[in-house]
Design a protein around this nucleic acid. Structure first.
Ligand code: ZN
Ligand code: ZN
Ligand code: ZN
Ligand code: ZN
Lengths: 130, 130
DNA sequence: CTTAATAATGTTATATTATTACATAGTGTT
DNA sequence: AACACTATGTAATAATATAACATTATTAAG
């Protein structure tokens, strides 16, 4: 098992709750929300999160230690992601990185790096809050 | 006190050790290295780190929970930073963001965001390791 | 079908990172 | 001196993440 599709039981549970959330979820918040579903301890959550990140199904917002579902089907391939984070309403939105990733990968070339993935987080005010 | 210049005692101690390091330092590693200098507890380190980040003297590598000295004098202004992180030798290098930040700020405009700062981390292999 | 290898799960304990809360001391202003 | 303000010191605890090991499920051979 454990190909692109076919999630395991715990992975399904964790992905499900992340997909239903309107905001990034933290590991222990996920844990407390799935205690009734047979997930009892941190390692079960963290293992599922790790795999889901590897598959590109979710992303970690590093500055928040929180996880969001991928809103952007091509992340499976590029393993790169970009987010805008509103400092007022806390809204986190995944940016369509098809254009940006082209620019950034050529930039990585220029500085002599063999680039595998990147993580980009914009902070500021979203449309509504600005 | 506490203008751009004129660091406080604890800020000087913390900045000094970060500047002397060839790799990103974690808060508790800093703490254990300055125990003999009158810094005894986490809040003293974290407070200094917070201020130094605000001033643009250091940056936090979010994916590593570690701190590096700014290698790039214009970060005081832009508050934005970009890094390449080698997954083999763990080398972290700050990228000169003068070009990249122009591109990214126009990108932020396009998506309707009032951008204040960004954090960009490239992962892959550095010149030496690739 | 049985067996062996592999992957996933369950569980306890612990490590690591970060903050809260409150007391104390310095600094500058009036 | 009295006050406001900033920085510091200290203890306790919260929040995030991993290590270690036992158990169960799944797959692939033989
Ligand atoms: Zn994505
Ligand atoms: Zn907003
Ligand atoms: Zn910098
Ligand atoms: Zn390297």
């Amino acid at each position: 098992m454990q190909r692109q599709q076919n999630l395991t039981k715990n992975q399904k549970i964790v992905l499900d709750i992340i997909e239903k959330s309107t905001e990034p979820l933290k590991a222990y918040s996920i844990l407390s929300n799935v205690k009734r579903k047979g997930i009892n301890a941190p390692p079960q959550v963290y293992r599922a999160l790790d795999k889901l990140v590897d598959m590109g199904k979710i992303h970690k917002i590093e500055s928040k230690n929180a996880f969001v579902a991928c809103q952007n089907s091509n992340c499976k391939v590029s393993k790169a992601a970009a987010f805008s984070i509103c400092e007022s309403c806390e809204e986190v939105t995944e940016i369509d990185n098809s254009k940006i990733s082209k620019y950034l990968s050529s930039f990585a070339d220029k500085i002599g790096m063999k680039y595998k993935k990147y993580n980009l987080e914009f902070f500021g005010l979203c449309k509504k809050c600005k």
